[in-house]
Every structure is written in C-alpha cells, then in structure tokens.
Nucleic acid binder design. Structure first.
Length: 158
DNA sequence: GCCAACGTTGGC
DNA sequence: GCCAACGTTGGC
C-alpha cells in the first residue's frame, strides 16, 4: 500500500462532492502535469490511501481520507474536443495522460490545515510544505500519513 | 488581486 | 539545446 495526497479546489470539486457520488467514487481526470501523471501511472495501485486536500481556499487543509479505487487508465477527457482538458497531441494508441478512480473513505473530524502542517516539526520534510510545490498529486510517506491521521482525530489506523 | 515559483513553448 | 516569454498554481 502506498500513500498519496491529491489537491482539489473545493469550489470545483470538494470532498463533500466526492461523498455524494455513486459509490462515493469519482474518476480523477484532468491531471496535466508530467510528474503527477507519472505518480498516477507508475505509482498508484488499487487500495492505496489518499489524503484529500482543499487548495485555493480561505483555509487550505486536508479534509478527508480517500482511497485509490481502480488501476490507472487513460484519461478519457484528453480525447474530448469539447473538454478544456482536451489534448490534440495525445493519441489513443499512445495516451499521454492517465487517470484513476478515487473513493471517499472518511471525512476528517478535525481539518488538518496547511498552517498546522507547517507548524508540525515531524512534517517538515513533507512535500506539500516544501517551497514552491505545485504538484496536484504527490506521494506521502507512511510516517507522515500516520502523523496526519493522529492530528485529524481519524478513527482509521494504519 | 498580487506575485513567487514552477512548467511549457517556441524562436534561434 | 538554450533561454526568454508566457501560462499556471496556489498561498497570502
């Protein structure tokens, strides 16, 4: 099992939206960064645990636990000419962008805010709090994941 | 809305 | 292959 963090702008798609989806599952499409693509394509496996982070909001924070609910597959909207994520340079026989299904597991009792993460000495090396980080999909160490669960009041233990 | 920190693009 | 210009992310 691997551990990840994914970002979403809550006014576009929040953890509450995910909880309302059928089977609490949503295709995680539209990732258009090669490093993030590589994490999805080469790293994400069914059952991996995911921290769900709200960005570009008044209080940026980890708000929920999710899980990877599929193996990775070609992101269908890269072939959709009407989508803003359409990529004319990507061919079906050699897709450029990948997606994965994400399922909500648990809403956190206590949000773990970016401010909290920055103040926690044990999380100093976390990618999310590093300078200039902009990846929307990133790996999280098991220790950091565990620490964040402790900060969140989650009933889920590793 | 500002702007730092990246990532991407395209001329050369 | 270099790098300036441009676009995007995301905290503040």
């Amino acid at each position: 099992v691997n551990y990840w963090l994914i970002k979403s702008e809550p006014h576009e798609f929040s953890f509450a939206h995910l909880l309302k989806r059928p089977n609490q599952t949503e295709p995680w499409t539209g990732v258009r960064n090669y490093q993030a693509r590589n994490f999805i394509r080469d790293g994400m496996k069914l059952g991996d645990r995911v921290l769900f982070y709200h960005s570009s909001t008044a209080v940026p924070a980890i708000v929920g636990i999710a899980e990877v609910a599929s193996e990775s597959y070609p992101d269908p909207i890269q072939f959709d000419k009407k989508s803003k994520y359409y990529d004319a340079g990507s061919k079906k026989e050699n897709p450029r962008w990948m997606a994965v299904d994400v399922r909500a597991v648990e809403k956190l009792k206590t949000l773990v805010t970016l401010e909290t993460l920055k103040q926690e000495p044990a999380l100093k090396t976390m990618r999310l709090v590093q300078r200039g980080n902009r990846l929307s999909v990133m790996p999280v160490s098991q220790d950091d994941f565990q620490k964040i669960l402790e900060l969140s009041g989650s009933i889920i233990l590793l």
